[in-house]
Simulated assay, not measured.
Amino acid sequence: MMNLFSIFEPSSSIFNLSINWMSTLLGLLFLPYFYWSSPSRWSLLWSKLIFILHKEFKALIQPSHMGTTMLFISLFTLIVFNNFLGLLPYVFTSSSHMAMTLSLSMPLWVTLMLFGWINHSKHMFAHLVPSGTPGALMPFMVLIETISNVIRPGTLAIRLAANMIAGHLLLTLLGNTGPSLSMSILSILIVGQILLLILESAVAIIQSYVFAVLSTLYTSEIN
């Protein structure tokens, strides 16, 4: 079991300096490329993706807070770079750790709560009781809405980390069985690993999009 979970171990270090978490910043190395290189299909595809995300987030955020779309696009970019870099061999997947995902969701949630309760207190109180709720159920609805609001950063963090861990564990489990298999079964295993890697690439994009969209929806609720 220790060997199985060693791919998620963040304690590797050189001269007592943890270097695994430096993989979180590797995405920054790709940014200067877009400024000095000539336009390519990949850069145009990325620009098109950012434009689509901007229109998607703009439809969810009020016109008075349009500048915040760049915040969520940057959040999506950071997560998707980390997810894809984690699929490379011997690259530490920081997005599979609660320390990383909670560091993204908790400050965002705390900021939204402080902004909402300070500037829109009546709206925040009204949001605890949905319209049309019978009077007898109002105390229970307040309790349920409060709990659902408090656990939001945890659900965002756990959703992202769990999906990253699940796919990496499955790839590791199947890969460890390779040396003990015959050549015919090994070829099937390799094809299965390739298909699973394609699935993990899709999950890396989907989970980044879900994290950013849910954060945007939480922002729209405080206005």
Results as ranks from 00 to 15, higher is better:
residue 156 L to V: 07
residue 143 L to R: 10
residue 92 F to L: 07
residue 103 S to A: 08
residue 87 L to R: 06
residue 146 T to I: 06
residue 132 G to K: 12
residue 101 T to F: 01
residue 105 S to Y: 00
residue 125 F to D: 13
residue 128 L to A: 12
residue 131 S to C: 09
residue 167 G to S: 03
residue 102 L to P: 00
residue 111 T to S: 15
residue 126 A to W: 03
residue 93 T to R: 11
residue 156 L to G: 05
residue 93 T to S: 12
residue 94 S to L: 01
residue 150 V to Q: 09
residue 119 N to K: 15
residue 133 T to Y: 04
residue 112 L to K: 12
residue 135 G to V: 13
residue 134 P to L: 13
residue 143 L to E: 13
residue 129 V to S: 14
residue 116 G to L: 06
residue 166 A to D: 10
residue 132 G to P: 11
residue 122 K to G: 08
residue 114 L to T: 15
residue 151 I to Q: 05
residue 85 L to R: 05
residue 91 V to H: 05
residue 132 G to T: 07
residue 96 S to I: 00
residue 165 I to V: 06
residue 147 I to D: 05
residue 169 L to N: 03
residue 103 S to I: 01
residue 128 L to Q: 14
residue 86 G to R: 01
residue 103 S to F: 01
residue 119 N to D: 14
residue 94 S to N: 06
residue 135 G to T: 14
residue 85 L to N: 10
residue 157 A to G: 06
residue 102 L to K: 02
residue 124 M to Y: 01
residue 155 T to N: 03
residue 158 I to V: 14
residue 92 F to W: 02
residue 111 T to R: 12
residue 154 G to W: 04
residue 106 M to A: 14
residue 155 T to D: 02
residue 159 R to Q: 14
residue 103 S to K: 00
residue 138 M to T: 15
residue 168 H to I: 04
residue 112 L to V: 07
residue 162 A to G: 12
residue 165 I to N: 07
residue 113 M to R: 13
residue 105 S to W: 00
residue 155 T to H: 02
residue 117 W to N: 09
residue 129 V to L: 15
residue 154 G to I: 12
residue 136 A to I: 14
residue 89 P to K: 09
residue 96 S to R: 00
residue 134 P to D: 13
residue 129 V to Q: 15
residue 102 L to I: 00
residue 163 N to M: 09
residue 168 H to Q: 03
residue 161 A to Q: 05
residue 170 L to S: 05
residue 153 P to R: 04
residue 123 H to V: 01
residue 160 L to Q: 06
residue 91 V to A: 10
residue 98 M to C: 00
residue 131 S to V: 11
residue 140 F to R: 08
residue 122 K to R: 09
